[in-house]
Design a protein around this nucleic acid. Sequence first.
DNA 1: AACGCACCCAACCGCCAACAG
DNA 2: GCTGTTGGCGGTTGGGTGCGT
Length: 335
Amino acid sequence: MVRSPCSPGASALKKGPWTPDEDEKLIDYIKRNGHENWKALPMLAGLNRCGKSCRLRWTNYLRPDIKRGKFSEEEERVIVNLHSALGNKWSRIANHLPGRTDNEIKNFWNTHIRKKLLQMGIDPNTHKPRTDLSHFLNLSQLLGAAQFGNIASPWNNFLKLQAEATQLANIQLLRNLLQMMNTNTLTNIESNSLLGSQNPHQFRGLVNGTTISNTNEPTTISQDLVNPPVTPQVHNDFQAISKLWASCEGGFGPEGLNINGDTLSSSYGIQTEQNPLPALVSASTSPVTSIDYQTERKGDPSNYSTGTPTSTIFEAWEKLIDDDNYSSYWNDILE
DNA sequence: AACGCACCCAACCGCCAACAG
DNA sequence: GCTGTTGGCGGTTGGGTGCGT
């Protein structure tokens, strides 16, 4: 039986918010003696608190190297990137953000980033486009009731909403692909680490507007992707898709995706002069983050959600494209 | 001014892993 | 190997605060 240091037996100990006096005692003691033994510290410091409470107060609030205040856009982007790779491993994410505590990052995620992702139609847990019912309800709100015309029949309306929601989910997916094209075609950044060995054939086939290849050729990283030649056809396809995207509902302004007046560009986005689309999580230009995906995964594979962000996108594409119902849909787009 | 609501975040709770005896 | 202790972590809570009505 493991007993918490703050067990019921120690109920006489004070709980709740810390007073300035208690803070001062804790700081003074740790400055003079360090904090080798949290269990013994409260008594030695003259605090009527359990050791655990003291440790939390110190690590989350009183530590001198804590950076307080608003998170920068760079920090926000790093958090999103790391979260897409690590999940809710707040302490490990905090390791990459000097001066930020896991608690602070966790709070920031739950109160800010999570909401933004949901508004963007991205599942904050999986970092995939959302296609579930609740999301569809959200999307319908974004679209607005006026868009849907005849509302005489609730079922008609429901089916319309559902179709719209599905289309928006697809658009979200398209956006992800576009961003990847954007990243690889126009910015020429660390494509190796971002793309891994996932599905270059599918990608190339799509770019060229042809049937998606499902051959069993040896899967190597396409040099066309790593350093893609911007052939006229690729260029045209890119522009065509960009135009399509620009015409989509809730498209992007210079600041990124704007939903309900809330712009989310930093976390998901790098932007280029040629294309203002926000970037994918996986397409971060942050070298730290790119390296971290690999090193972290090597360290503890069990901690990660399935697939890299990049493969997640490709998997979603593959699934979508395999669906006969959408073949003509995408052909129309790509033509 | 009073009230209700939503949001934020410090702090707590419970679980787990590492370690010592 | 077993048991108890300790520290670390992630999830959750609830008090404080701001804002709208």
